[in-house]
Design a binder for these strands. Structure first.
Length: 728
DNA sequence: AGTGGGACGCTTTTT
DNA sequence: GCGTCCCACT
């Protein structure tokens, strides 16, 4: 038997060799999912069933794609090239470049990041004379994204899908936003899939072309696919039906982004005759860790059902620790101390991680680690390309590449300062709209007709002449040199050199790094795609550092020691998740907990604090219900018994939000009876008398959603969040 | 045109 | 506690 097959267990081998026809691989955490996927990919190639370009392999993250590429290459013994392997978004972008004209774009369209999307939408809303104070652009953005997740173009949105946002104008605004994107020759993230799916749905010739070329389809993390991704896959797979989806319904944690576990639960119906292979031997974690995770996830309903078995020989291993602490400071201290102890006994820092529910929680641990002098890294913080200087530089490149990109132009027209203020910009917009030309062209008109004077006029003329020159230079001197010249000649790098702030040198360094990275690409277009779709924090991964990250970011990773702090009601499970999605939300939180525990190879330390500092003030909290769901015999509970969950639940007079112990300790500055919860429990109706911390007493005159209009006795009429008032 | 102060609103997860 | 937005001042 060939090498790559002999290293697999029987189930894994089955999943690799069942090449033809639909196959669903249910792969529990740590059961060798990636190994199966890559072996299957290599198997298809090595048995000459397809050429590299005839296999489509989609992943969810760039990291997974990279890893798959490397491992396929390793099996093949040569770099894997010419593959259709990447994230849904990257692959769709690549396809869409070929067919851009079918959706009214040109193949050089730019991809907008979240920031640009929001700015554009806000402009659209303002143009529609909507009060963006009353109707928050992010809320509409979310609605639009959900539509896109479901494969709904504006034309496909039915009244039933509509929201009551802006008095039913959401659809109209969505259409206007899409028009704007098209005019600017840009696509947002969701468009990549939406447009491509729309093309495959409506153009049978294009669909057939892909049916011919893709003989086999591999899909990673199938449980995370949303509806449009599902549609896209089904369209591509429907002719040959050689589709293999790998996933784990217990690790579905992206429903808030439109992912539908139903996709995986429904696989057999979608592809009749599908084979299902379960991978249940876990090679990652100790028996107690697996049993703890299993005990927890068993509380979820509607699972496909898998039982993780310890696949490692030694089934010993320490129990999962559950530590009760007084407050979040003490919790950070506990984590830091244990890390130090482990480090002293020879454990590397890189094998330790702190996994938190929400990004802001990392801060407390960062501070502690700084005090202790333990090096750490925050995974998934600000991405490289999200930094201001990188986005600026990219905006320059985007205009160079794609002159109609008004958003990019707007971003840099006054960077460095060129004396362009609100008025000048408004003038440009007017001309652009009147003559239906891009903003940059409008600026040129303005220079000509004398709409700008003095220094501003000169500066803009220079900038525009620069773009002409740089565009000419592109084919002659190449993109690396041209971009470097552009950043210098435009005065952009000079701007940072003049900047005396502490960050400026770092920013210049980042810019250099950006130009360096440019050299890895043949074209500017290729680089821009990479930057918006792929580029991540490229920190020295080699360094021995503790990792801090969210549970979401931890999916797919593993560490010897995993700290899971903040297991408190409201934090984890997250209150908002439960408010918005009820039981479904809670189950997703539980899956998140499951993901967290199963990241640990040898040690998992779960903790919770009775008092947590959230923003400025202290809040009492009760331990997470998940702690009750962990099997007792696998868990070692420690910390003050009085702080543990069973005691607190049993204590008389306890109701959510009130903590019996808190008052006895002086550290707590605010023992509360949250007005928030009081208000949420029963809606406040119009006409009620209410009290607001800042505005005093008043009468409710109206309400919608979580807002109240209140006529305050002394401070006038205001619109306030309902959780900031209580009944008077 | 650009800067700085103050009020306000909001705090999940991200390709 | 932070970022954003608005406004008033230079």
């Amino acid at each position: 038997m060939t090498d790559y097959l002999s290293r697999l267990n029987p189930e894994q081998r089955e999943a690799v060799q069942a090449v033809d026809g639909p196959l669903l691989v249910l792969a529990g955490a740590g059961t060798g999912k990636t190994r199966v996927l890559t072996a299957r990919f290599a198997h298809i190639l090595l048995t000459n069933r397809a050429f590299p370009g005839q296999v489509l392999a989609v992943t969810f993250t760039n990291k997974a794609a990279r890893e798959m590429r490397e491992r396929v290459g390793a099996i093949l013994g040569r770099p894997a090239e010419g593959l259709w392997l990447g994230t849904f978004h990257a692959i769709c972008a690549r396809m869409l470049r070929r067919h851009a004209d079918l959706v009214g774009l040109t193949s050089s369209f730019n991809i907008l990041d979240a920031d640009d999307q929001l700015r554009l939408l806000k402009q659209v809303m303002e143009a529609a004379r909507l009060d963006t104070k009353r109707w928050a652009p992010p809320a509409l953005m979310a609605a639009i994204q959900r539509w896109k997740d479901r494969g709904l173009t504006p034309a496909r949105v039915t009244p039933a899908d509509d929201t009551d946002f802006a008095n039913g104008r959401a659809r109209e605004l969505y259409a206007a936003y899409q028009d704007r994107l098209r005019t600017l020759n840009t696509a947002d993230f969701g468009d990549l899939l939406l447009h491509m799916t729309e093309i495959l749905r409506t153009r049978s010739d294009v669909l057939e072309q892909y049916h011919r070329s893709f003989r086999y389809i591999l899909v990673d993390e199938y449980q995370d696919t949303n509806q449009v991704q599902y549609l896209w896959l089904r369209l591509l797979a429907q002719a040959r039906r050689n589709i293999c989806c790998v996933g784990d319904d217990d690790q579905s944690i992206y429903s808030w982004r439109g992912a539908e576990v139903e996709n995986i639960l429904r696989f057999e119906q979608d592809f009749p005759g599908a084979r299902i292979v379960r991978l249940e031997s876990n090679y990652r974690s100790t028996a107690p860790i697996l049993a703890t995770a299993a005990g927890l996830i068993a509380h979820n309903e509607g699972r496909l059902g898998k039982t993780l078995r310890p696949g490692l020989n030694d089934s010993t291993g320490e129990k999962v620790a559950v530590v009760a602490l007084w407050d979040s400071d003490e919790e950070a201290r506990m984590v830091g101390d244990r890390m130090e102890t482990l480090a002293r006994s020879g454990h590397t820092l890189a094998e330790m991680a702190v996994l938190v529910r929400a990004g802001f929680q990392t801060r407390a641990f960062e501070e502690r680690l700084i005090t202790l002098g333990l090096p750490y890294r925050v995974v998934g913080g600000l991405r490289f390309y999200e930094r201001a200087e990188i986005r600026d530089a990219i905006a320059y490149m985007r205009i160079l590449h794609q002159p109609a990109d008004d958003l990019a132009f707007e971003r840099i027209v006054n960077l460095p300062r060129r004396g362009i203020g609100e008025q000048a910009l408004r003038g440009m917009h007017d001309i652009a709209r009147a003559q239906a030309i891009p903003l940059a062209a409008a600026a040129a008109v303005m220079v000509e007709v004398g709409g700008l004077r003095g220094k501003a006029r000169e500066a803009i003329a220079t900038l525009l002449a620069g773009f002409v020159r740089w565009r000419e230079s592109l084919p002659l001197r190449g993109h690396v040199e041209t971009v470097a010249a552009m950043l210098d000649e435009s005065g952009y790098t000079e701007m940072w050199r003049q900047d005396k702030s502490a960050e400026a040198p770092g920013r210049l360094e980042n810019l250099k790094e950006l130009v360096r990275a440019l050299a890895d690409f043949d074209t500017l277009a290729g680089f821009l795609d990479h930057v918006s779709l792929v580029m991540e924090n490229e920190e020295n991964v080699a360094a021995d550092r503790v990792s801090l990250m969210t549970l979401h970011a931890a999916k797919g990773l593993e560490f010897d020691t995993v700290f899971l702090p903040g297991w408190e009601e409201g934090v984890f499970p997250n209150q908002r998740s439960m408010d918005e999605s009820g039981l479904k939300g809670l189950e997703e939180e539980r899956r998140l907990a499951y993901v967290g525990i199963t990241r640990a190879r040898r040690r998992a330390i779960i903790s919770h604090a009775a008092n947590r500092r959230i923003y400025a003030n202290w809040q009492a909290s009760i331990p997470s219900r998940f702690l009750d769901e962990l099997p007792d015999e696998q868990v070692a509970r420690s910390g003050s018994a009085a702080l543990q969950r069973d005691r607190m639940i049993a204590a008389p007079g306890v109701f959510p939000g009130q903590f019996p112990m808190a008052a006895r300790r002086p550290k707590v500055t605010e023992i509360w009876e949250s007005p928030a919860r009081a208000a949420r429990a029963d809606a406040i109706e119009v006409g009620s008398r209410v009290f607001h911390q800042k505005f005093g007493y008043g009468t409710v005159t109206g309400s919608d959603d979580d807002r109240l209009d209140v006529a305050f006795d002394t401070s006038g009429s205001k619109r306030v969040l309902d959780r900031f008032v209580e009944r008077a």
